[in-house]
Simulated scan of single mutants.
Amino acid sequence: MPRYALKVEYNGAPFAGWQRQADQPSVQGAIEAALAKLEPGAHTIAAAGRTDAGVHARGQVCHCDLAKDWAPFRLSEALNHHLRPLPVAIVDAAAVSEDWHARFSAVERRYLFRLVTRRAPMSLEAGQVWQVKHALALDPMRESARHLIGLHDFTTFRSTMCQAASPVKTLDALQIERVETDWGPEYQFRLRARSFLHNQVRSFVGTLERVGAGAWQPDDVLSALHACDRAACGPVSPPHGLYLMGVGYPDDPFAD
C-alpha cells in the first residue's frame, strides 16, 4: 500500500488532543474521518508526537497508508476540502517508503512556547499565548535554562502519567527571546530534542516563569532538577501557549 507523510497545522483549542478519543473530538480523528471520505473504510494514522488538549501545531507530521496512488498535492487538497471547517490543515504531503514512520523515523522535535506579559486581557491572541500580568526578567530565565540543557534525569519535569520507559533525555536547546509586539512583550521559548517526556516543555516553562517573576532563583531550578522528584517542579504552564513547530528526519520527506 502506498504510504504518505503529511505535515499538519492545527489550532488545538477545540480538540481533546491529537490522539483519537471515543467520545471527544481529536485531530487524529478528524484526519482519519477525512481519509475515509477519500477511500471508504477504517484508517489509522501515526504521528510524530501526541499533543495534549489545547496544544497547537505548525509542523506536526503523521503518515497514512492508502489503497491507491495519489499525487501528493492532490491528496493534501482533497484532505483539506474534507477537513473544513475544522481548524486543521494539511500544509504538505509526500510519498514515502513503506518502512518510513512518522514517529520512529524522527530524530528531532522542535517546540515553541509563547508567553505574553500585559495587564489588559488578550483579545485577538486569546487561546494562542499564555498571558501573565506581571513583568519578567529575561536574564535569570536564560541562566536557569542553561541548567536544563544536556543529558539529565528529568523526573522532576515530567508528568506522573508519563509512559516513557526512562526519564533520562537529552535537551539540545532551550532558547528564550523577548520580542516586542503590538500586543505586548512576548517571551518565546524554543526547545529542541530528539524526544520529550509528557508535560516536559510545559513544566520547564512554568518553572522558568517563576524565576522570571522573582519567586525562584536560577539555582533553585538546578536543585529541582537534581531532586528527581515531581514535587520539586514549579507550576505547569497552560497548554494553549505551546506549539509543535517541526519534526526532523534524516531525509526530510518534504524537502524540495
Rank of each mutant, 00 (worst) to 15 (best):
M1K: 15
R3T: 12
A5P: 07
K7G: 10
K7I: 01
E9R: 15
G12N: 04
A16E: 08
W18M: 00
Q19F: 07
P25N: 02
P25L: 01
S26F: 01
V27R: 03
Q28F: 04
G29M: 00
G29H: 02
A30D: 00
A30R: 05
E32T: 04
L35A: 00
L35M: 01
A36W: 05
E39G: 09
G41E: 02
H43V: 00
H43G: 02
I45V: 07
A46Y: 13
A47V: 03
A47N: 06
A47G: 07
R50T: 00
R50M: 02
A53S: 11
G54V: 05
V55K: 04
R58I: 07
G59S: 04
Q60F: 03
H63E: 07
D65E: 08
L66H: 02
A67F: 10
F73G: 13
L75R: 02
S76P: 13
L83D: 06
P85R: 01
L86P: 13
P87L: 03
A89T: 14
A89Q: 15
A89E: 14
A93D: 02
S97D: 12
E98D: 15
D99G: 08
H101F: 01
A102Q: 03
S105V: 02
E108I: 13
Y111Q: 05
R114F: 07
L115V: 12
R118F: 09
R119L: 15
V132F: 11
V132C: 11
L138G: 11
P140N: 07
E143R: 14
A145W: 02
R146F: 12
R146I: 10
H147M: 07
H147P: 13
H147A: 08
L148E: 02
T156C: 10
M161H: 15
K169G: 09
K169A: 11
T170H: 06
T170C: 10
T170P: 09
T170F: 08
L171D: 06
D172H: 15
V179E: 11
T181C: 08
G184D: 05
G184Q: 06
Q188W: 12
R190H: 15
L191P: 06
A193R: 04
R194A: 14
F196W: 06
L197C: 06
H198Q: 09
H198C: 10
H198A: 06
V201Y: 05
V201C: 07
R202V: 03
F204T: 10
V205Y: 04
V205M: 04
T207G: 08
L208T: 03
E209N: 15
E209L: 15
V211G: 09
A213G: 11
A213I: 10
G214E: 09
A215K: 13
A215W: 14
P218A: 00
D219E: 11
D219G: 10
D220Q: 10
D220F: 08
S223P: 13
L225H: 00
A227N: 01
R230G: 05
A231K: 12
A231N: 10
A232H: 00
A232L: 01
C233H: 06
G234N: 04
G234M: 03
G234R: 04
P238K: 10
G241C: 10
Y243A: 03
M245H: 11
M245V: 11
G246Q: 12
A255L: 15
D256V: 14
